[in-house]
């Protein structure tokens, strides 16, 4: 259940904190495949917003009944900094944070953190993970050629966002070409049975079953 409507408070015992509403849609699609119905998804932003909004979230009615909290964050260019920023915000809001990446905190609510696409060992984002899951899709050959062409002509400037751009190109090749990542996940465009999503699904499963 995504909490973005008016007058939201906390109703379920498990929280998943993600950056934006499109991320929330994406993770809701995976939770649906796992039949995890007791997880509330709060798109509370990253960076400074995360710390500030977590501070208010923990004051909402129902927070005292929360058992577990999962936080998913993009690694971007510095996965360690992403992890440290989340743990610092958690601690500064009076919650217990995992001692290191891959651990869970020891006090209730139990907090766990996942940095995408692949923990603190690689840079990237959710879209990087998605691209790995479709690397054998026929559309990818065309898309990679297209981006090679862009690079050859020095047209594409923002290499840091290349995975995001490739996901958009992939989605442009689908039946309804105007969907964003989260919407496309809800529409079933992504192969969640791929082993690429296994770690992510395990992470979500643990949150929903703590």
């Amino acid at each position: 259940m995504i909490k973005t409507k008016d007058q939201s408070n906390i109703e379920l015992p498990h929280l998943l904190l993600v950056e934006g509403i499109d991320d929330a849609n994406f993770f809701e699609a995976i939770l649906n495949t796992l039949s995890l119905n007791d997880v509330e998804i709060w798109p509370i932003g990253g960076g400074r917003d995360f710390k500030k909004r977590l501070g208010v979230l923990r004051k909402l009615s129902g927070f005292e009944r929360v058992i577990s909290i999962g936080v998913i964050r993009d690694a971007d260019t510095n996965p360690t900094a992403a992890f440290d920023s989340v743990t610092e915000a958690i601690r500064e809001n009076g919650l217990s944070a995992p001692a290191s990446y891959g651990c869970r905190s020891t006090e209730t609510p139990i907090v766990s953190i996942m940095i995408l696409p692949n923990g603190i060992s690689s840079t990237g984002m959710l879209e990087s993970l998605c691209l790995k899951a479709i690397e054998n899709d026929p559309a990818m050959q065309c898309i990679n050629s297209f981006f090679d062409c862009l690079h050859t002509h020095s047209v594409f400037q923002r290499e840091v966002d290349e995975d995001k751009a490739k996901v958009h190109a992939f989605l442009a090749s689908r039946e309804k070409p105007d969907k964003r990542l989260g919407e496309s996940a809800l529409a079933g465009y992504w192969p969640f049975d791929s082993e690429i999503f296994e770690d992510l699904k395990r992470f979500l499963f643990e949150i929903g079953n703590t």
Partner: peptide
């Protein structure tokens, strides 16, 4: 809830 908390809560449509 302080002023900053309320600013954030209303921005996020949270029920205080």
């Amino acid at each position: 809830f302080s002023k900053c908390d309320l600013d954030t809560a209303f921005e996020m449509k949270m029920d205080v």
